[in-house]
Nucleic acid binder design. Structure first.
Lengths: 189, 189
DNA sequence: ACCTGAACACCGTTCAAGT
DNA sequence: ACCTGAACACCGTTCAAGT
């Protein structure tokens, strides 16, 4: 990449971080370009889709997740590790309004620029879950996708102003449900 | 209301139901007016906000909830009543993509046209919860708002393509958590 | 009283023209 | 190679002008 292009790339990313933190993941791309002082085409050249921009923006955070999960795997009890990891996700998503919906969609869409990051995240969670399950500390009828879904639901709830005041409590309810060693189907469907 | 206006009102509503079922609650109002064959101003005259349109569209469904909840209160066991009510909500919201987010926001905003309906819904749920709690069948540290939040989370999850295949299972996990008579704080915060 | 559609201020996305 | 910004096709919302 040419030096001037590189500079634009980095600057757009820095501005995008500010704007998206302010207005959420649906923030106007025009405003990002405007505030960055570049043409709209320049933004599109570097980030052909909104998801590509977000991917570049969140890559570091996603990498941290993986690192953190590996650390938790050896440093904490299986229960604490799982709970800490869930908390990380909730806290992270709270910085980028609407990112949970995007991640849920990206997980299902291999074409999405965010797909790989979501899969990595799922893998990390799956390992923490498996360890807890092996020690009889977590539901054995649950898989990594289920954990991802519940984490997303938790993150979604925490980001709703309506339920935010009770976020810790609701977190607790769902975390308890995961960490209860319970057989499947408590209620018929 | 004049007869011609009444006709427009009803027709817009009928078309809106189709379009919103197709494209979700963020559907283009322009398209609704276009398909209804009325001017954009006519739509705005009858429904000054998107939420006013949705309120008119969903009023009947919300009323059904109240009726249903009252019936469940006497016809079913406290547990079955609560679970059935939750299922109703999940099924209802699945018809209008994005309505859960709107309801969560409306619950917090007394100015929203959907506010009253959300409160009514919360009240109905609160009663079903109270009955279960009185018989020691549901968490006693939970209130009507918490139930509403968990119902919303469940509805949100069920409407995500990514988690939809496991919707019944995830429903079960959360419903179990509600119906477990458990003391508060299983995990420190 | 009610309806219409142009007008305004925004979008996302593409692409010819410039350097 | 890279950048720019006009152009296009959409929005939501308002409101003067019509019936």
């Amino acid at each position: 990449m040419r030096a001037d292009a590189m500079k634009n790339y980095e600057h757009i990313l820095a501005v995008a971080n500010v704007v998206i933190t302010e207005h959420g993941v649906d923030a106007s791309l025009r405003e990002i370009a405007r505030r960055a002082g570049v043409g709209l085409g320049t933004l599109y050249r570097h980030f052909p889709t909104r998801e590509a921009l977000l991917e570049a923006l969140l890559r570091a955070s996603f990498d941290e997740f993986t690192t953190k999960a590996r650390m938790l795997e050896t440093a904490s009890s299986p229960e604490d590790a799982l709970v800490s990891w869930l908390r990380e996700i909730v806290e992270f998503t709270s910085n980028y309004q609407g990112v949970v919906d995007l991640m849920m969609a990206a997980k299902e869409d291999p074409e999405s620029a965010l797909h790989a990051s979501c899969m990595t995240m799922r893998t990390a969670g799956t390992q923490l879950l498996a360890r807890a399950q092996a020690e009889g500390l977590a539901r054995t009828d649950m898989d990594g996708d289920d954990l991802f879904s519940l984490a997303a639901a938790l993150a979604w709830l925490s980001n709703q102003p309506s339920s935010a005041p009770r976020a810790d409590y609701l977190f607790n309810i769902i975390a308890s449900a995961i960490l209860t060693n319970r057989a499947s189907s408590d209620f018929g469907v």
